[in-house]
């Protein structure tokens, strides 16, 4: 197995902040792994994800995603890498409210020629693949045509998952996607997410502050263990 994400001596400080939010000496996640990243609120988990997604750049250190040194890529190349190879699920409000569920899923291919190409190789159109994925995630054909704002939060999160998964990107990042769901829906959601990630061999990086989810994952990373920045230090 080759590495999916590698961090070496990565430090990150928000512009204008006095202290580093992140100081990660070493972190490595292999391709195909399903990893839970757990840490208390405000410790910098989302910040780390935005570095991995190529939105922000580390202040110092080396960050490689899918063998691409992000620090060496320019903004456009990072955006392109994210479009093609990273599926991102937010905690909430993942969807454009004025598009139907299926159109929201198809949006994943808007800026991602590689995803479109992979679907083509399977002989699927973007719309077909979106609908098929939504069906597998448990949305009926009628529900797929509803506008995002007409769906329940649980349905919305499944649509978001479908969008992240469409076109088999190498890495799925989920930033507390289940925090708005109840216990039963949460477990079901994680189940289908696992299933699909395994089916298309996508790496899953799942972030939460909820310790009870750890039982689902083979590998659990405690954020405080990898981040050298002490929370207390930040508040001094």
């Amino acid at each position: 197995m080759s590495a999916c994400i590698t961090l070496e001596h990565v430090r990150f400080r928000w512009p204008g902040a006095q202290h580093h939010t992140l100081d990660i000496p070493q972190l490595s996640i292999q391709r195909g792994e399903q990893v839970l990243l757990r840490g208390p609120s405000g410790c910098g988990k989302s910040t780390l994800l935005s570095l991995i997604a190529g939105i922000h750049c580390p202040t110092e250190g080396q960050l490689q995603v899918l063998n691409q040194p992000l620090t060496a890529l320019n903004q456009r190349q990072r955006d392109r890498l994210r479009a093609n190879e990273i599926g991102y699920i937010f905690q909430q409000f993942n969807l454009l409210p004025y598009l139907s569920a299926v159109a929201n899923v198809a949006l994943a291919c808007q800026f991602a020629p590689a995803r479109r190409q992979r679907l083509q190789q399977q002989g699927l159109s973007v719309d077909q693949a979106s609908a098929a994925l939504l069906t597998r995630l448990g949305l009926s054909t009628a529900e797929q045509q509803l506008h995002a704002q007409q769906l329940s939060v649980g349905q919305q999160q499944r649509v978001a998952a479908a969008r992240a998964l469409l076109g088999a990107p190498a890495l799925i990042i989920a930033d507390e996607p289940t925090s708005a769901l109840d216990q039963a829906h949460r477990d079901a959601f994680i189940e289908v997410l696992f299933e699909q990630c395994a089916a298309q061999q996508s790496t899953l990086l799942f972030v939460t502050h909820d310790a009870t989810l750890a039982k689902h994952f083979a590998r659990v990373i405690e954020f405080t263990a990898i981040n050298a920045v002490q929370r207390e230090a930040k508040h001094v």
Partner: peptide, 10 residues
């Protein structure tokens, strides 16, 4: 932010 997440650049 959603557009950014699906790969839209600034």
């Amino acid at each position: 932010a959603i557009l950014r997440a699906i790969g839209a650049g600034p």
